[in-house]
């Protein structure tokens, strides 16, 4: 019977217990104070052993070791290696500490170490931040963050696109800076698309609440708060922004290789594909990039995507190594390129 009771308690703890077992367990507990004691002690032991290894791991550094080995073994691999650089801003931080009360973002007096990661076009990565928040970094994107989030804020700098799943810390906001646009959250998940080369920033919220701030003439001001499935698109050239509803699941679908485009200019779609597939897409006539399309691609090879896109838009394409040319059907007959 003793073993049977342990079995029931463990099943209860693991939430795999049957209704029948639960009744049995309840009856058994009520039988005697010793049984109740055994029950509560066992639960406490199981709980404690679950937290035994809640440890912060250094997955990124460990992977860097493995990656270094792979890289050194085979040089001619096409996959560009992941860069990890540790930058020490000791001097800067020291200077800052003098003005630490004035500087909102740099209250810490310890030198701040940054980790920097970048993906070439065609490569995604998943990054575990020091606070256990997860970042999915898209192709052609770069992220920089404090190696230890010890300050009053968890600062992350982004050039490119990333999906953030942020662990809630009420006293330490998570701040994503992309140029003049700053996104501030406590704990939520959201997508930021901010390629410096594109002069626009899109923020889409999947869960929680996000504040988007813009720095205008050196002053940071709130643009607006966003709730789930709300999207803010800011043109960083002229500061104009549009606010609309968007399916955040679809916007962040790229993390699973799903692409959804609604009424999107072909040239914008092309840029997304460049980041994803690591190719260069060119239009023989820039005008061709203006036509708008709505399309969904779930985990398809580039060739399939290009075929669908060109069929939809009545165009055609040719691929030469890493270059894709989109052209008019008419021109194809001429066979200018062999």
């Amino acid at each position: 019977m003793e073993e049977q009771s342990y079995r029931l308690i463990v099943e209860y703890f693991e939430k795999t217990i049957s209704d029948e077992g639960l009744t049995q367990l309840q009856e058994w507990i009520e039988e005697s104070p010793e049984h109740l004691e055994q029950f509560s002690e066992t639960i406490e032991i199981l709980e404690a052993s679950r937290v035994y290894f809640r440890n912060r791991d250094n997955a990124i550094q460990t992977w860097a070791r493995v990656q270094a080995h792979i890289d050194q073994e085979e040089k001619p691999v096409i996959h560009a290696k992941r860069k990890i650089r540790w930058l020490a801003y000791a001097a800067v931080a020291l200077l800052m500490s003098t003005f630490s009360l004035v500087f909102y973002f740099h209250k810490t007096t310890v030198p701040v170490d940054y980790a920097e990661l970048s993906n070439p076009n065609g490569q995604h990565s998943r990054i575990l931040l020091p606070d256990s928040s997860v970042v999915y970094l898209s192709g052609g994107s770069k992220i920089r963050y404090e190696k230890t989030f010890l300050g009053t804020k968890r600062m992350v700098y982004l050039d490119g696109e990333a999906f953030f799943d942020v662990v809630h810390q009420s006293r330490r906001p998570f701040v994503v800076k992309s140029g003049e646009i700053t996104t501030v959250v406590l704990g939520t998940s959201f997508n930021v698309k901010a390629y410096a080369s594109e002069n626009k920033v899109d923020v889409t919220v999947r869960t929680g609440k996000v504040g988007v701030m813009a720095s205008v003439a050196g002053k940071t001001q709130l643009v607006r708060y966003l709730l789930p499935d709300e999207q803010l698109k800011i043109n960083t050239d002229n500061g104009l922004y549009t606010f609309n509803k968007a399916d955040a699941r679809e916007v962040s679908g790229w993390i699973n290789n799903h692409f959804v485009f609604y009424n999107t200019p072909l040239k914008e779609i092309a840029v997304s594909l460049e980041h994803r597939y690591g190719v260069k897409i060119e239009f023989t006539d820039p005008e061709l990039g203006e036509s708008r399309l709505t399309a969904k691609f779930k985990n398809l090879p580039l060739k399939q995507v290009m075929e669908d896109l060109t069929t939809l838009s009545g165009l055609s394409f040719t691929q030469k190594d890493n270059h894709v040319f989109i052209s008019n059907n008419d021109q194809k007959g001429g066979k200018i390129m062999k």
Binding site: E47, A48, V51, Y52, F53, R54, N55, R56, D131, T148, Q169, R171, R172
Partner: peptide
Amino acid sequence: HLFTDKETPFRIL
């Protein structure tokens, strides 16, 4: 086994 971070569940537990 302990975090330096004070707010983690592990630390609390």
